[in-house]
């Protein structure tokens, strides 16, 4: 058992170590090179007037300008903070609520229509109401993000929980576990992966809702930057803002995925 075959296997790296590194870099940069190529392709294809599509170089220099000369770093910070708050609060509520909905089938069939009703409402449509009840301060923006994060992650959570196999609970019971022990020692470990997935989904949705949230009289933030730019038709700034949002969201997702993998080493996965 566990004995390795002694016959030498053909190397899985036909190009050697340096080749492997080069391959990894190519793998990492490939998608970005592709999107840049597409960008240039569209720009020079003549479908749109060239002045309507800034080149990547223009956008990059705009980024540099606003980072050095402007408040871009501050805008990034403000947006990240809002998203972070919305996601933390949203998931903190979604995890227990989703857990209860997943666990109690009766409750789930009762609440399902409501959840799907609210989930379908676009956050932008709620802005007037949020302003009426919460004003135009920081809390109004966080509430919109909270809303989006909560409804996206609560569904992930309860779908996951409702699929927990009763087998493990039965095993624990035959070993003598009490209900509270089953909860602490079986259900919680099985719920953690779903809570982490819910967090990830919430993060994605919150970034996607950011611009809408910052429609609420925001002075700072990437959404505000984009809106200001659109008022003055500064296309390169709009592109830059969008790209910043995408990259920050990507970075946070990668970090969260790393964390998840470390926390869930026991999981079988095919990657």
């Amino acid at each position: 058992m566990g004995a390795e075959s002694s016959t030498p296997r053909p190397s899985r790296r036909p190009f050697g170590r340096a080749g492997a590194t080069a391959l990894r870099i190519a793998h990492f940069l490939g998608p970005w090179a592709l999107i840049l190529a597409l960008w240039y392709g569209v720009r020079y294809s003549g479908f749109f007037e060239a002045s309507l599509i800034p080149t990547p170089v223009q956008v990059a220099s705009r980024l540099w300008e606003m980072l050095i000369g402007g408040d871009l770093a501050w805008d990034m910070y403000m947006s990240t903070q809002r998203v972070f708050l919305g996601v933390i609060l949203g998931t903190a509520c979604a995890v227990p609520v989703g857990f209860l909905l997943g666990w109690y089938k009766g409750l789930r069939s009762f609440m399902d229509p409501l959840i799907n009703f609210f989930r379908a409402l676009p956050p932008i449509a709620l802005i007037p109401l949020v302003i009426v009840y919460f004003g135009i301060g920081e809390s109004a923006k966080v509430i919109i993000l909270f809303y989006a994060a909560f409804f996206a992650s609560v569904i992930v959570m309860y779908e996951g929980i409702s699929q927990i196999s009763p087998l493990y609970i039965r095993v624990a019971q035959t070993l003598g576990a009490s209900d509270s022990e089953i909860f602490r020692k079986v259900i919680i470990p099985l719920a953690v992966p779903h809570a982490l997935t819910a967090l990830r989904v919430a993060l994605g949705v919150a970034w996607a809702t950011l611009v809408a949230a910052e429609l609420v009289a925001a002075q700072q933030g990437l959404g505000a930057v984009i809106q200001d730019a659109s008022a003055y038709f500064q296309l390169d700034t709009i592109y830059m803002g969008i790209i910043c949002i995408g990259f920050i969201a990507l970075a946070m997702d990668v970090a969260l995925r790393r964390l998840t993998r470390r926390a869930l080493v026991w999981q079988e996965r095919n990657d």
Binding site: L167, Y168, R170, V171, Q173, T174, L175, L190, E268
Partner: peptide, 19 residues
């Protein structure tokens, strides 16, 4: 109901994957 004096081995093992 179930009790620890009756140990059960299930058709599909039921080994806890997180432990």
């Amino acid at each position: 109901g179930p009790g620890s004096e009756r140990g059960m081995m299930f058709q599909d093992y039921g080994v806890f994957p997180w432990l």
